[in-house]
């Protein structure tokens, strides 16, 4: 598979009144054509800002991409002018967002909101874009699409709106679809429908996907590869099966441990990672996770471990080996 995307040392900061927020701190990863990459991590760990930065969709000011490159199809998106990056957005790279209830414009028809991108990037006239919009709505499973195209978002349910968002994201046959927590705001049965829909569309259309979530269960059946982010850094990267089978960063271990299991004894408490993620304005010295880490050693307080290869396609940023090294403290958060 050919390389589609190469992110090198991407660093995004927000310059606020309280100080510089280090939202994304030098992340690097790659994505092949047609590949699906899952990015997980808890809220505020830089997942969204990280992917928004790819197409320079962060509010500037206060946000700024201070370092790094994003090579997409051999071109650096970060160096592009506003006009150039706009011809990529919605065209070669489509996006879908978290909350379908607020992500569609309430005063424009569904059709208009899909047609907009088609007319802009594909040079279609109104009739062509309308025909294509109906086709897209059918593709994402909206019944009687030809009638519903003149409806407004408030006439659609949440799940239907997310389908419309997917239709918008896919309208110009993108090579890459970025999905920023597209199922978080939906209830569980609808979540499954949306995941299945995206899976089917990927198999039919062959686009690559970056799927952001904080729910490890959602991406398990969808992603080829996973990134785990913490405090704006990548702490672990692995093929999806490998990650679930051999989590190698204490944070990933904690995340997986906090998932409810079907074979769990009822009434048993779920594991949780105690404490809160570090303040992104004032990042701690050493490993960003040390304050919550059960495996930490002296070195973790002073030096941030690099992301190093530990298996085939498997990287982790940790000084210790969680499969061999012992737990050093049971209640890490209370000692710091």
């Amino acid at each position: 598979m050919a390389r589609l995307l190469e992110v090198n040392n991407l660093r995004t900061q927000f310059f606020t009144q309280d100080g510089v927020v280090n939202a994304v701190n030098g992340i690097s990863y790659t994505l092949d054509e047609g590949e699906t990459l899952g990015i997980v991590g808890e809220s505020g760990c830089g997942k969204s800002v990280g992917v928004m930065s790819l197409i320079k969709l962060i509010p500037t000011p206060p946000g700024k991409i201070v370092e790094g490159s994003v090579i997409f199809n051999g071109e650096n998106l970060i160096d592009m002018s506003d006009g150039e990056i706009r011809s990529v957005r919605g065209n070669k790279i489509g996006m879908i967002f978290q909350d379908p209830m607020t992500s569609l414009n309430p005063v424009l028809t569904i059709g208009r909101q899909i047609q907009e991108a088609l007319e802009l990037h594909m040079g279609m006239d109104k009739a062509q874009s309308k025909a294509r919009a109906i086709e897209l709505l059918e593709l994402v499973g909206i019944p009687s699409a030809a009638d519903r195209i003149n409806d407004y978002p408030h006439q659609f349910s949440g799940g239907m709106r997310q389908r419309v968002m997917i239709a918008i994201g896919l309208s110009c046959n993108p090579q890459l679809l970025i999905a920023d927590e597209p199922t978080t705001a939906l209830d569980v049965t609808i979540q499954a429908q949306i995941v299945d829909l995206v899976k089917k569309l990927r198999d039919d259309l062959g686009m690559a996907i970056i799927w952001i979530t904080h729910d490890l269960g959602v991406v398990a059946g969808l992603a080829d590869r996973m990134l785990v982010m913490y405090a704006g850094m990548i702490v672990e990267e692995a093929p999806v099966k490998e990650l679930y089978a051999n989590p190698s960063h204490p944070y990933t271990v904690g995340l997986l441990g906090s998932l409810p299991r079907l074979d769990q004894v009822s009434g048993e408490k779920l594991d949780s990672i105690e404490g809160l993620p570090p303040d992104l304005i004032d990042l701690p010295k050493g490993c960003p996770f040390h304050a919550r880490c059960k495996y930490r050693i002296e070195k973790c307080f002073t030096e941030n471990p690099p992301l190093k290869t530990i298996g085939v396609g498997h990287k982790a940023a940790c000084w210790i080996d969680v499969t061999k090294d012992p737990i050093t403290t049971e209640r890490p958060y209370q000692e710091v």
Binding site: S87, R89, G90, G94, F97, T102, S103, L120
Partner: peptide, 22 residues
């Protein structure tokens, strides 16, 4: 700061289009 304005930008619309249409 509404989400649908971000959606409009993600479609590649220019700032003027975002302002006038959305």
């Amino acid at each position: 700061s509404a989400d649908y304005v971000r959606t409009a930008r993600s479609k590649g619309l220019s700032e003027q289009m975002v302002m006038s249409r959305h």
